[in-house]
Design a protein around this nucleic acid. Structure first.
Lengths: 191, 191
DNA sequence: ACTGCGATGTATCACTCCGATACATCGCAG
DNA sequence: CTGCGATGTATCGGAGTGATACATCGCAGT
């Protein structure tokens, strides 16, 4: 959900719509690319909800990177206290939706700000979901393989490989999480 | 677009909503998975448009695989002549939207029924689009690499690899198309 | 024989997001 | 000094999702 992404980005520094979108692209990369058509309405909605507020303070001071432009029609938003709360809240709840394709990417992008336990839960949830999907496709594929033309077959198999790759990627990440986790535990117990 | 997929599937045999959805999953695999929430309304819309019609003829005769159930509330749809036209029409137009993520998968699933030239055009269009995207991400990544936390970085790089894999896949497919194309030409000229 | 559960089947609704489009200004290259 | 590409805000129609509701069928377990 866009809301989470906006909250996360504003956590760093106040931003206006256009720049938010740039950051969105830079942060989510090839996974997701929200359009202005959803960004601006979302910004309004979030402002109405009180998660964010217009920042009238001059933009120059704010960013480490120079904002480059003066003050025109730009509407700069900043996070409110409620917004910060909301962000933490959203990051903490690893509901089933967190392993859906769209949600996962966004949540993962803010893993650095997420509780280690939640991280593992999400990673594992996603992996389980993908494995489920994979088995479903595999099953239906073995059932209908000979009835499919070569293109459909290609599509299936490429898809299957992609899912497979992501599963492996997730497994690596989970493994890494586990390692740093035990490491963390050892340090705190030997302290 | 769901419309295209429905047209394509009904091209084989008349089907009712539920079964259509099963076939949809079997055909599109892990690429796309339309929900009933869009399927049923689409079916209605298409019926109103005249592309499909309710098939009152008994369902038993119809499918190679036994339909298993009698006639209850099931609504079986079949393709109309206009629907067939529409299908051909949709397959022929390789507009820019054909290389968008969602469209591409659906269109590719019916490549067997698509004109060879259009096939190559779509494949190349998609590849170009992906390469564009990849370069964009790469550029923004090299610009902001050190500012990103390890998770965001992981995400970016995994995404980049995925795109890379698909580009390679597409290249193979294009190569294959080219081969069968020249082969086809040789045959027809030596005939 | 009964029970209940999972698969089959149709349908709606609120919501999110996309893509196209419109419009205005800035900074800079030719 | 002219025009073009990047910056910037905004709306609108349409497509698809996820949740939910509801009903029936066939079968497995007791």
């Amino acid at each position: 959900m866009l809301e989470l992404a906006v909250l996360g980005l504003l956590h760093e520094s106040p931003l206006h719509g256009y720049e938010l979108r740039q950051r969105l692209k830079a942060t989510l990369g090839s996974f997701r690319a929200f359009s202005y058509g959803s960004l601006y309405p979302t910004l309004r909605r979030m402002k109405d909800a009180g998660w964010i507020a217009e920042d009238e303070g001059d933009a120059e001071v704010v960013a480490g990177a120079p904002p480059l432009t003066g003050k025109r029609g730009k509407v700069v938003y900043k996070l409110t206290a409620e917004g910060k709360e909301r962000f933490t809240e959203l990051l903490a709840e690893a509901g089933p939706s967190s392993w859906e394709d769209e949600q996962f990417g966004v949540h993962f992008a803010f893993f650095a700000k997420t509780d280690p336990e939640v991280r593992v839960r999400i990673l594992e949830g996603r992996r389980a979901r993908l494995e489920e999907r994979r088995e479903g496709v595999r099953a239906s594929l073995s059932r209908t393989r000979e009835r499919l033309d070569s293109y459909t077959l290609q599509l299936q198999e490429h898809g299957l490989e992609s899912v497979d790759r992501e599963v492996r990627w997730l497994s690596e990440l989970i493994e890494k999480e586990r390692l740093t986790e035990t490491e963390r535990r050892n340090q705190s117990s030997s302290r």
